[in-house]
Amino acid sequence: MKGRHTFAAGCVLVGLVLAVAVVSLVWLPYDPSDTTGGRLAPPGGEHLLGTDKLGRDLLTRLMVGARIALTVGAGSVLVGGVLGVAAGLLAGFATRWLDDALSAALDILIAFPTLLLAMLVVAVREASLGSAIVAIGLAMSGVVARLTRVLVKRVLAQDYITASRTSGTSWPRLVTEHVLPNIWPTLLVNLALQLGLAVLAEASLSYLGLGPPPPNASWGRLLQEAQATVLTAPLGAVAPGVLLVVLVVGVNLVADGLRDLADPTRRSSR
């Protein structure tokens, strides 16, 4: 029961941000780079949440920010998930020698800190939406691969796999029929947690000025820009942070709920 409520609460929070992002595709109160609103207009009136120091509408930029947060989050989970699951499957099925080599490489990739890796990718390419997605996804793939490998090994040790193997099932069929159906719930929970981390990583990159460049109004960039005017326009420095927390808490709740729903033994004990 508890899992279902957690899951539902998470879905509501994520859905809220998702709805804002979808609306921003078809309708925005103002143009995101329109600076005609007057500088630091207070909330209310023509600009519902006021304007920033260049006169851009805060609500508009928050809506665009939702889109960027979700794009980078989902994009990097896609990159990291595909790379990670592929590498993890390979290591899980590999012979001992290849498995050892892959595991060592993964350990090193994981030891390489996410944010530094992301900053390195951005330093090599230029700061853009694509760079942020590739950088965060790449950093994430190590963790996903290591988890996948452990899960695959656990499934492959089961008796029914041995039975299936002796009866001549090819390994691609083994993957699609036995391995993936058994490991996807745990993987999904982990990918959901990674989504939250990716959103935070993108915010940090943008705050440092290494995220998607203007006119992409990422929440991290909004916070960085609002820091100087926090006393005159406090809403600009509060609202993007609140939205970030709402999205990440929502994603984490979805992950927790999924974990409880996928594993019945956890439901009663907590």
């Binding site: 939250g196 935070l200 915010a203 940090s204 705050y207 991290g220 916070l223 820091q227 926090v230 006393l231 406090p234 420095a237 509060v238 942070g241 970030l244 927390v245 990440v248 808490v249 984490n252």
Partner: peptide
Amino acid sequence: AQLGVAVPVFWIGILLVT
């Protein structure tokens, strides 16, 4: 604690400075 892990560290910094 659940809430804390979802908060970007630099935002806490901005709020504390303020």
